[in-house]
């Protein structure tokens, strides 16, 4: 069961940690909106594979480490949702 977790909350929001606790081995996490803040937060562990939306990253002037996270656009986001059997939007 391959689930895509779309997270738009920053690590400070309680739902962010709830989401991390629900990510199974072959699930995928996509950070959007405030979720991309997690990429700059040295105090938290992010799962992998991990994707993040380019527009939100640029807005917040973040420079994510490409080894940890793949930066994608909206068309890739749509592709991710199609590939997964289930999507949870946190």
């Amino acid at each position: 069961m391959h689930t895509l977790h779309i997270v738009s909350k920053s690590p400070g929001h309680p739902r962010f940690l709830e989401c991390l606790s629900m990510v199974d081995t072959n699930d995928v996490v996509l950070l959007t909106g405030n979720g991309v803040v997690a990429l700059a937060d040295s105090s938290i562990e992010v799962p992998s594979p991990l994707y993040a939306l380019e527009g939100d990253i640029q807005a917040r002037a973040l420079t994510p480490d490409s080894a940890r996270c793949q930066v994608i656009g909206f068309d890739d986001m749509v592709a991710l949702t199609i590939q997964s059997q289930r999507v949870i939007s946190w």
Binding site: S10, P11, G12, N34, V37, A40, D41, E54, G55, D56, Q58, A59, R60, A61, L62
Partner: peptide
């Protein structure tokens, strides 16, 4: 906290229409 991110240089919010 996360508010310090307001103070980053080179913010470009055009892609999210802000």
């Amino acid at each position: 906290g996360e508010g310090v991110l307001w103070l980053s240089q080179r913010q470009d919010a055009s892609a999210i229409a802000q």
